[in-house]
Design a protein around this nucleic acid. Sequence first.
DNA 1: GACTAAACGAGACGGTACGTCGAGTCTTTGT
DNA 2: ACAAAGACTCGACGTACCGTCTCGTTTAGTC
Lengths: 210, 210, 210, 210
Amino acid sequence: MQPVSAGPSRPRPVGRGAKVHRAVLAATLAELTETGYAGLTVENIAKRAGVHKTTIYRRWQDRERLVTDAVIDLAASTLPIPDSHDIDADLRAFGRGLVGWLNSPTGQAVLAVLASDAARLPQVAKAKQRLFNDRIGRAAPVVQAAVDRGQLPVGTDPAALLKTLIAPIYLRLLVTAEPVTETTADTAAQVALTAARAGLLTGAAHQPAP
Amino acid sequence: MQPVSAGPSRPRPVGRGAKVHRAVLAATLAELTETGYAGLTVENIAKRAGVHKTTIYRRWQDRERLVTDAVIDLAASTLPIPDSHDIDADLRAFGRGLVGWLNSPTGQAVLAVLASDAARLPQVAKAKQRLFNDRIGRAAPVVQAAVDRGQLPVGTDPAALLKTLIAPIYLRLLVTAEPVTETTADTAAQVALTAARAGLLTGAAHQPAP
Amino acid sequence: MQPVSAGPSRPRPVGRGAKVHRAVLAATLAELTETGYAGLTVENIAKRAGVHKTTIYRRWQDRERLVTDAVIDLAASTLPIPDSHDIDADLRAFGRGLVGWLNSPTGQAVLAVLASDAARLPQVAKAKQRLFNDRIGRAAPVVQAAVDRGQLPVGTDPAALLKTLIAPIYLRLLVTAEPVTETTADTAAQVALTAARAGLLTGAAHQPAP
Amino acid sequence: MQPVSAGPSRPRPVGRGAKVHRAVLAATLAELTETGYAGLTVENIAKRAGVHKTTIYRRWQDRERLVTDAVIDLAASTLPIPDSHDIDADLRAFGRGLVGWLNSPTGQAVLAVLASDAARLPQVAKAKQRLFNDRIGRAAPVVQAAVDRGQLPVGTDPAALLKTLIAPIYLRLLVTAEPVTETTADTAAQVALTAARAGLLTGAAHQPAP
DNA sequence: GACTAAACGAGACGGTACGTCGAGTCTTTGT
DNA sequence: ACAAAGACTCGACGTACCGTCTCGTTTAGTC
């Protein structure tokens, strides 16, 4: 079992406890991926992490906090945002990057959480949305720059375009359970660009005035 | 002497059991919608259905079978497929119909199951895919007729088009937790049509040769 | 809606009931002997009697009444009281008869009830005592006749003598779980006679004045 | 049941468990005395012991083992064996001691088990016999000494004599449900002595050669 | 010999207790 | 002094049997 990427180090003055901390979070994610949120057992996590149950409860108040923590850790994982000033290439690269990440162990874990009752936990839901908003927020300037360069119509909503791009990918993963490849990403990118150039993805269309 | 009743088959004098059956399935779906699969309690279901716990176990072997049964029941629900020979209007109507269904209690229940650990149960996963395949399968001829009428490019893959249509809707419901309205459906329909007319949604693009 | 009929309003004695009645009581005793009172199952009794559970509940209000009824039936079984005007021979015969009866199926059933929680049921306890009192009451005149004939000391309490006779037999069956044979009965008879002739078994000795 | 006394190595750092252990056994005996084996409820035992049901199941595999353990504990209770070198006085004292013990809470519990379906449990049956054999085994030397001193006939079987002594007491308790007093014990002692002095209680009479 | 009403077969149901599993708390002990 | 070990409370699981209920189906006694 490979440990999850360390991510931003959390300065806990616990000494060697940090090792335990990471082991438990990694074990939690592994169990989450394998058995889902229902069926998640603190005792199994403890066993897999080579740690006693009480040790877990000393650090996390309950199962929800533990899962939340593990997922938040995950949501911090970054996806590089391509920016080559060629919006067609950039969107294709963005889509392929997303597909690659979703097929990686980390991405699988995130998907497992998305399609799980764990997503009902408020903190997890927040982390989930933060993850998406963060990515879209970081990619939006690239799209906006393309608009400013005239590669896309004025008024194009970067968020709407990006969502149009990623939607087919998640549909296949979460709903129809079809395999997702780079072809899927490429088609999605083309569709999104075509729609944008047809002037369909303006903010008004997606966020009507209240 | 009385002749023996004809045939070895014994008709079941099903008493009032049918009423109980329905009440339990309804209660199961309600609980599933409210609390998710984890946190689902047979005792709560029994209480809500006004039935005793053992009665439930008499009809369903365990919690999984119960949930499976409830969801399969659900998956049988049909969505009318519009067919006015105007593909633009039909797709918009299809999208709006889907949105309306997803906002109904039944749709909410289906969504709750989709985004739940219940989907890990093999039978539930099968039911889930059957639901989608069935709908797409029933809508595909309408799209194909439009192709035949020349309203869409030759070679357009009906399934790919329909998936492009529904993807943004599910993305908002399952991932970004944004509200979904008829506007969402309309935009999605336009995007899908535009992409199709750009020749992006051919079968080849989605199912590349091995 | 009572149809008027001539004579007393006596329900029609529709009659295969008696057969069922006996079958159930027999099955009850068999189960009682095999598995004891704890572990007694109405459903098993029904199965053994070739009868449906509800049929049993139609005739007996609950398990206790059923067991009570079965045992009371049993307690009515009679043991012949020897009377040859030779008290030594009679007591020996009485002891041997008791041993034989206790080793018979009926006796085994009675023992099973004696050493069972069924004896806590008031009606069963009464039946149990009635059984013993009845036997001792029927044998007492024989002993009293021996006293009158001068074969035993004046003042000898027949009940005390008979109890002294049967006590070792029941001790072996109920407490020490030793086998009981005719030798046991013979020794017990001799002991009882010796004690009586020593003047130890007068009523006063057992029922001291208050 | 007492844990093994601590040796050089302590494999079990038993917590406060010992207190719970005793409380549960005591509650088991109390319930057993009050309601018998049938009708014995683990949940009631737990409630009475101020302990949770699962705690009981952690220590005892099932109800049978629990009852067995409680009774075995009981069977360890000792009865002092009088030895004044006056066999008449000693037997009377033995009888009175037995009566006193049987009227005590401990004795009542033992009787409750004797006359219960719990006695069908193999381990309980063994414990029961061990209890009796142990007591008779410890009293036998006193009787044998009396034989050696010439107070009883040569060849007298101590076990046979002692059983003759205790038989009427158990008969009254288990069968006829009469009250048992010291008078009962005194008479029984006299009867046993008289029988022994008449040469009736030799081993041969009770244990015929196979 | 047909009618009719009691008795029976069948089985679902509410309910109690079983024995099991896991969550989360608390206590004892070793170092 | 403090953390590991594990015993404890609590709640739900899925099972067995109790005793009740309501249907239909014999079956025996009367007409």
